[in-house]
């Protein structure tokens, strides 16, 4: 059986088969023979050639959260067929990194802005977060107004990148 995982933009194919009580797992060009024990749901230990690794797994749809040796890795399982669709990012849109309330709108639809221009200010947990233009360009659409509640991941701003001749910033 083959699985695909995606972490930080990189794909990791893993081959796995069962061998009695053990698993044979191929990662990259290496194959590991693994003894596996589930202590309780989500809590497992791996024994790889006598070396014990304790880990914890939490699953959320295609997302995997795994705790090993004090580090938490958050990555995705990639199902066949969805590989391209989910990683094609729209370069012309800015999504919200946080859930919160819009306190200031700093740009109008159609406005030409410089890179770093503060388009929106979102307040969450009593702190302010500034949504800045990632590049110089034209604001196609600001999707929220002052006072609106926004959720993490929603489209905030549509923007068109200015290839050349962007206005110079005045100090």
């Amino acid at each position: 059986m083959e699985m695909q995982y995606e972490y930080e933009g990189k794909m990791y194919p893993v081959k796995i088969s069962r061998e009695g009580e053990q698993f044979k797992v191929g990662v990259g060009d290496k194959t590991f023979v693994v003894d596996y024990k589930e202590l309780k749901p989500g809590f497992i230990t791996l024994n790889i050639g006598g070396k014990i690794t304790k880990c914890n797994i939490a699953t959320e749809d295609n997302q995997r959260h795994i705790f090993i040796n004090g580090n938490v890795y958050r990555f995705n399982k990639v199902e066949a067929g969805m590989k391209q669709a989910s990683f094609d990012k729209l370069p012309s849109s800015i999504t919200s990194p946080i859930s919160g309330k819009v306190t200031v709108v700093g740009a109008k639809d159609g406005e030409i802005v410089n890179s770093g221009h503060v388009i929106l200010t979102i307040e969450a947990m009593k702190m302010e977060y500034q949504i800045k233009a990632p590049y110089a360009g034209k604001i196609e659409k600001v999707c929220f107004k002052t006072g609106d509640q926004v959720d993490i991941g929603v489209l905030l701003v549509e923007m068109e990148k200015e290839e050349a001749g962007a206005p110079k910033k005045e100090e």
Binding site: R18, V25, V27, L46, C55, I57, I68, Y73
Partner: peptide, 22 residues
């Protein structure tokens, strides 16, 4: 930044877990 590569143990754990569930 935390490590940007996945150690093999992480992938092994994920694969076994997914294998068992499938």
């Amino acid at each position: 930044a935390a490590s940007t590569t996945l150690p093999p143990e992480v992938l092994i754990a994920a694969a076994i877990d997914d294998f068992k569930h499938s």
